[in-house]
Design a protein around this nucleic acid. Sequence first.
DNA 1: TTCATACTTGACTAAAATAGTCGGGAATCG
DNA 2: CGATTCCCGACTATTTTAGTCAAGTATGAA
Lengths: 138, 138
Amino acid sequence: MKLGTKGRYAVMALVDLAYYSQGKPLSLTEIAGRQALPLTYLEQLFIQLRQKGFVVSTRGHQGGYTLAREAHSIRIAEILEAIGEPLQTTRCKKESGMGCLGRKGQCLTHTLWAGLEHKMYQYLNGISLADVCEKQVS
Amino acid sequence: MKLGTKGRYAVMALVDLAYYSQGKPLSLTEIAGRQALPLTYLEQLFIQLRQKGFVVSTRGHQGGYTLAREAHSIRIAEILEAIGEPLQTTRCKKESGMGCLGRKGQCLTHTLWAGLEHKMYQYLNGISLADVCEKQVS
DNA sequence: TTCATACTTGACTAAAATAGTCGGGAATCG
DNA sequence: CGATTCCCGACTATTTTAGTCAAGTATGAA
């Protein structure tokens, strides 16, 4: 139950972008430097973030990335999902009856884990990039 | 952000123990069979659970494990901690100023992750083995 | 034009964590 | 005794993580 760097870095970088960009593109070099993140790793992450429609890229000199959507409309849960950070507490596949489903008397703990997953999602889906920038995190 | 088997199996097994034991010791063979868990792996986990005071062992024929404490007093969060399931969203060491603390302007996301961790702990610390048995999980 | 900056992409990899297995022991009961 | 059951340490295969590296392509400025 640890948060990996993929999800952590993606969110950190997007928050940095939302926080420091004034409509102008920010280069990954700048973001990586400010947040102390490995540049080449960030490059990988941002390709995915662009493909998923979170950011827009501007190539060449003075280029960089800009948020493609409003900061207050981008939720943390979305980012984690887009980047492939699982957020998974059960191993039961909904399809094909894998895991504890499909057996009887088993997995007394299923609702426990499902509840945890829900709590986590609820929290992360209730917070936007803008919220983090304004420290509106409860 | 995935729950590992260590934590999952430990909780599953203890719930099974709380649910099926009538004061009598249950063998790991029985629990492992009922919950479809690898026996030798469970043995490892239960040694730790015994050392941490969650269960009492009875050796020999008709032996097995019994809960050492009341089921309603054992919280899920405790079990996960005892078994070494991290439940960790930040990487900042409290001591020695590692991580984002100690720098300035960095880790805008710190409170975000700390908040998530708190939510998770709150949830798992609010549920006991007895609650899971009675499906009193909200 | 040329050059430096920056994004783009795919392949690759070292190290750590995960999820166990295996072998041998020791205690207890029937 | 001997079957059962806990006890313990060592070992290992696989997967995941957390990146690096090489080789581009696009753009703006000098």
